[in-house]
Design a protein around this nucleic acid. Structure first.
Ligand SMILES: Nc1ccn([C@H]2C[C@H](O)[C@@H](COP(=O)(O)OP(=O)(O)OP(=O)(O)O)O2)c(=O)n1
Ligand SMILES: [Mg+2]
Length: 513
DNA sequence: ATCCCGATT
DNA sequence: CTGCAATCGGGAT
């Protein structure tokens, strides 16, 4: 944590501060010329600015410490910190050798220029994200909950909360017992995935009017490329874009009685980040210009970038990188320590460049899984009991969806929250309860003897629709391609193949991880 | 290609 | 006293 940064001062890298975002919800309020547009209050993010974060953090910390979960979490984070130490040593090594450093630096700049050449503002993306989704559905169906603090969760964890509860610091991903401490009146509702799935389908159907090929990686959000819609209606300009976003939100509100928030920008990633800016029930428009995008991104915490989570935030912060701007300033540090794909991803995000055309989505779901957490079990018969319950559920869903699978994975989590997996790929697809059970037992015996466990899960991969007729059965192999980058939909968009390193200073080994 | 682990949402 | 489901990257083999 005490490493000093290189003083390299990139001349070509972005600068410029100031007010970038059009706060549509508030900003245009006075003009009121277009009666189609609905405006909303919410400057204050629903009162979340008054939250006593200190008190909240203390309570959370107080409650956490001592638990087995907390211990395992600490251990995990310590491993990350060790990794950061190694990264910093590597940086020091490069800095000690100026030729090495310069070479890497040049390569970084070269690539950044390449990425920049790729920027364009031809298309309009709208990211729609439902507000407090699970909780909103529950409250809609039980209106008397509206002004009370509500959390939705299973077992002992909270999936999401309404904004009343968030004022108390109760939010996604914290355990219920801590939530109760923070807010004794908290009302807990059990999650009902099937219900949210249904609402999600309705939600997506509404959005499909604006983009047939919409992408989505969650029940409560969609990415729409609305360029076609805008052009068909002759409104491919700022006002038209905002109009469409409002129209989408209004349709959702009218048909489902749920609120949502939108981000409008020239690509996938930026629209998603924007959708969070004016959360609940708001719209954020990011102007389609390099200057405005740069202003917006400069001070943006890197964690806000979808794909950068807790761990990568910690690693980057260890390298002195907390904002998008710093990713570019410390490009070399990133370049020599991250994989090629990760470097490209981070650099392009920091530049505000991302995919702006749809990737072909394989319609078919790739996996199906069921997992249960329970009071610790240690004996083989108990293990088998748990397994039977899970396989029953899996078999039901497989039958329901008329699919079969080639790969089955058994997952076991011990009391220290360490997970192991055992998987097996069959020659021909399986689907019956009997087959599933046989393979699962085989996997369990592979892992046996086991320490006591607190969770068991079974996952199926390599899914295929089961053919109705036996004849002509070699027709659809639906070849599954194993490509894809996980920085997921926010990555990729390269007309030109990725630049490889082209000198011998930068060996593949340099990109390890 | 398969297996396993880890990160993210 | 810390869930469930799905996706993907990457190392190893
Ligand atoms: N740790 C988490 C985080 C989220 N979710 C689920 C519940 C949320 O309703 C849904 C959508 O996630 P969001 O991050 O969009 O959160 P919300 O929609 O609940 O709130 P908001 O979008 O208003 O911030 O995903 C979950 O099960 N577990
Ligand atoms: Mg949401």
């Amino acid at each position: 944590m005490t490493q000093k940064a290189p003083q390299s001062s990139p001349s070509s890298l972005p600068k410029t501060p100031q007010n970038v975002l059009k706060d549509v919800s508030n900003g245009a309020e006075g003009q009121s010329e277009d009666s189609e547009i609905i405006f909303h209050y919410n400057k204050s993010k629903a009162g979340l600015e008054n939250v006593d974060t200190n008190r909240i953090n203390n309570i959370i910390m107080e409650c956490s410490k001592g638990s087995e979960y907390h211990k395992s979490e600490q251990k995990r984070l310590n491993e990350v910190k060790e990794k950061v130490t190694r990264y910093k040593q590597k940086v020091a090594k490069y800095q000690a050798n100026s030729r090495l450093w310069e070479k890497a630096k040049n390569e970084v700049y070269r690539r950044i220029e390449l990425y920049k050449a790729n920027r364009n503002f031809k298309r309009t993306w709208i990211h729609v994200d439902m507000d407090m989704f699970y909780a909103a559905v529950e409250i809609r169906d039980n209106p008397h909950l509206a002004d009370k603090p509500v959390a939705v969760g299973d077992k002992s964890m909270i999936s999401t909360t309404n904004y009343v509860a968030r004022k108390y610091g109760v939010r996604s991903g914290i355990p219920i017992f801590i939530g109760k401490k923070l807010c004794p009146d908290l009302i807990i509702i059990k999650t009902d995935y099937a219900k949210y799935q249904k609402v999600s389908q309705q939600f997506k159907k509404i959005c499909r009017e604006f983009d047939e090929d919409l992408e989505s990686k969650g029940l409560d959000e969609v990415n729409l490329d609305v360029t076609g819609y805008l052009r068909r209606n002759g409104i491919d300009h700022e006002l038209g874009r905002i109009f469409v976003a409002e129209k989408i939100r209004r349709n959702i509100k009218e048909e489902l009685d749920l609120t949502s928030s939108c981000g409008i920008a020239c690509n996938n990633m930026l629209s998603k980040i924007c959708s969070d800016v004016q959360k609940p029930n708001g719209i954020t428009y990011l102007e389609f210009s390099e200057k405005e995008i740069t202003k917006f991104l400069m001070k943006l915490p890197i964690r806000k970038v979808p794909g950068v989570g807790k761990v990568n935030e910690l690693i980057l912060s260890g390298l002195g990188i907390n904002t998008c701007e710093e990713v570019l300033q410390k490009g070399v540090e990133v370049f020599i320590n991250f994989t090629e794909n990760s470097f490209e991803f981070l650099a392009r995000c920091a530049l505000g460049i991302s995919r702006n055309v749809h990737e072909r989505e394989s319609q078919i779901q790739k996996s199906l899984s069921v997992s249960n957490t329970f009071k610790p079990v240690s004996e083989l018969p108990q293990f088998k009991d748990k397994l039977i319950k899970i396989i029953n559920e899996v078999a039901d869903r497989v039958k329901d969806r008329k699919i079969c699978a080639r790969t089955i994975t058994l997952e076991l989590k011990n009391l220290e929250y360490k997970t192991i997996r055992r998987s097996f790929t069959t020659e021909r697809s399986i689907s019956t309860h009997q087959e599933l059970m046989n393979h699962a037992i085989k996997l369990l015996m592979e892992a046996w003897p086991m320490e006591p466990i607190r969770l068991m899960g079974v996952r199926l991969n390599n899914l295929r629709k089961v053919e109705k007729r036996k004849r002509d059965n070699k027709s659809h192999w639906k070849d599954r391609k194993s490509n894809g980058y996980n920085w997921s939909s926010y990555k990729l968009d390269r007309p030109t193949p990725p630049p490889r390193f082209q000198n011998n200073t930068l060996t593949p080994e340099s990109f390890g991880k």
